[in-house]
Design a protein around this nucleic acid. Structure first.
Lengths: 211, 211, 211, 211
DNA sequence: ACGCTCGGGACGACCCGTTAAT
DNA sequence: ATTAACGGGTCGTCCCGAGCGT
């Protein structure tokens, strides 16, 4: 039992060390030696827990995906104004990035790995899809309650997800990982977009013709 | 002269082949052999034009940054309603991604490389900054003309940039690089956000307290 | 005492497991993990009994050499026709290989290890020498008793040893370790060779010239 | 053309260097660096010609098997006394080992590798089989011509092969690879064995009972 | 006290970026 | 501009030892 406990703890420690290296330097550029050093043990030690770099990576991703699922697939309470709920969701999703540069880098790391492994990409898409449907649910409620302007909830949800991912990109770009916008500001603007009346039709049609 | 012309052409061909590999597999995972194969010549042949992998990479990035600067640092005409201008800007920035998966992947590649080389990160920040200031200019004009709701132009510009980057992320995630939202839809929503009245103060304040 | 007894038993079990691996895969290719698995305990467990792979190997070889010495350095009874004795010797030496593929493989393993360690080679030569001198003794007696054709007993003994080793080689080559010749057949032929009149001189001389 | 010629030459050089290492130290214990050093080039140089150690090994074995086939599958002339032919065959097969320690070691190396790879073992069996059938042919002729005592040609051929392999074993055991018996002596004794009258029946039966 | 778990170096194959020669 | 070759470095893995649990 204690053994099991210790094993898990050590594996967790290795995973977190490896994750730190991965988000900073990418998968291919990260060497086992770096991970070992970061984890405070030797290459052989790592090999005792993980038979291969790829397997370590897979397990890390598994863990991260699970964690994100759990964190993101949050069931919003129904007895709250939809705009409040949506703002809280945004804060929840973006808040973790504040003060934790690696959190934002993780996001952009996930995106950058997507083109390479199809299995990986599938998982990431599933995750995005969950995020999107959570938003879509709240937005739909908001539209029903006349808190949000009428429109396609799916499309609007995609917009919000864009904002969240985009913020992660900008944070990953910053040397210290700071957000260019506070989570609250992002939330406000998202709500603002949703509240707004839909633009007049001809504007978009004109646009297309112009381009 | 012809020699020079041919050389440039060949270098361009190598760069574009290398770029294709880079955005798909990342810098570290891309081997010179892959690049050579993609470019249709031998490994040694690359060295005739580029002394090192790193230099090839640098020159590619140089080229890409210049291209993006040129494409993005577009001077919006002043005799046009600000909302129209902004929509056209968004189309300009996002349109290239439509039907060109590698374009979106390039964006996420740039973001993923940022944490690694500081010089690289600086350039990317400069680019983002240009993008942001272009948007900020238009938004400021829109606010003056009462087309957009009053607010901080910089903040709103950051929001728009977030949307653009976020869309690139989602496109990079898609197996065929398709956009989950048409450029026109993104543009409409951006304009919608900017037109909207600012949300009532207490909402955001309450949010902070709740969290 | 019981402790001692158990220890020896366990060591014996390890040695026999290791020997099985060795003759099948060779020294360098045999890993401690394989041996441990074959012996039914863990890698560390082996280390408890043997400080090093090399020492385990040495001890195994020691044991095997002793066993072979004991088995081979058999004192032939003097009151028996030399041809009978010789046949019994051959049966003794070859009989163990019948139905025991590893026995033949051990022989070829010993031979294949000889070029590598000089100490090892010395032991093997000593063993061969014992074998040869036992045969030589019997053959000499046979020549005195006119049972065998006159000649150099040492040379004839070497011939018989060749046959024995050669049979081991052929058995080691067979997938199931079967002998291509029964021990009895080998014995018969050995005796036949020894009984035969020496060939006429000029044939061999001619041979040399021809070649 | 010259290119091809050079390539083959270099590959041949690598193969022969590798073979020298292999027969001395075995497959598993031989490192690529050793081979490279022996061949007079670097690790990478080897890799240019052979993508993997295993492939290099396979090609070497291929070459060796072919060479041995060619050398051994020799068509004995029919207008020569069978005993002469047989002696010449033995000289042909054993003569190469004289003064060439590696030749004998190769033989024992082949035998020691047989238990490991089944494909390899099959080839070795095929080779032995060729050798045996060549001998069997000559022996049969000898029996027809009353030069050899009547008996089973296959069995007698196996005996001769045993002698050859056995001599190789003994040579491989010797520090300098010397043969304990000259090829001529071996040939003489083989012929002697074949010429001899078959032993009386009851001897072998008695033997079996004794055992 | 025995035995395994855990960890440390070390090394091998493989492969990559790079250069010299042609 | 291609072929041939080099050496460095990574991953996987092996042999071995020390400490901890039973």
């Amino acid at each position: 039992m204690t053994r099991q406990r210790n094993d898990d703890k050590r594996k967790q420690q290795i995973r977190s060390a490896a994750l730190r290296c991965l988000v900073r330097r990418g998968y291919a550029a990260t060497t086992l030696r770096e991970i070992a050093k970061e984890a405070g043990l030797s290459k052989g030690g790592i090999y005792f827990y993980y038979q291969a770099k790829q397997q370590l990576f897979d397990e890390i991703m598994e863990t991260q995906f699970e964690a994100l699922h759990e964190r993101w697939a949050f069931d919003p309470m129904g007895d709250e104004p939809a705009d409040r709920t949506l703002a809280r969701l945004v804060l929840l999703h973006v808040g973790a990035m504040e003060g934790a540069p690696d959190e934002a880098r993780l996001c952009s790391f996930l995106v950058s790995m997507a083109p390479q492994h199809s299995a990986f990409r599938a998982k990431l898409e599933a995750l995005s899809s969950v995020l999107r449907s959570v938003y879509a649910g709240v937005i739909e409620r908001g539209m029903r309650d006349r808190l949000f302007a009428p429109g396609d909830p799916e499309e609007q949800a995609t917009m919000v997800v864009c904002m969240v991912y985009g913020l992660a990109c900008l944070a990953a770009t910053d040397p210290r990982g700071r957000l260019p916008l506070s989570p609250e500001e992002l939330a406000e603007n998202a709500v603002r977009m949703l509240r707004a009346k839909a633009p007049v039709d001809h504007s978009s049609r004109t646009l297309r013709m112009t381009n």
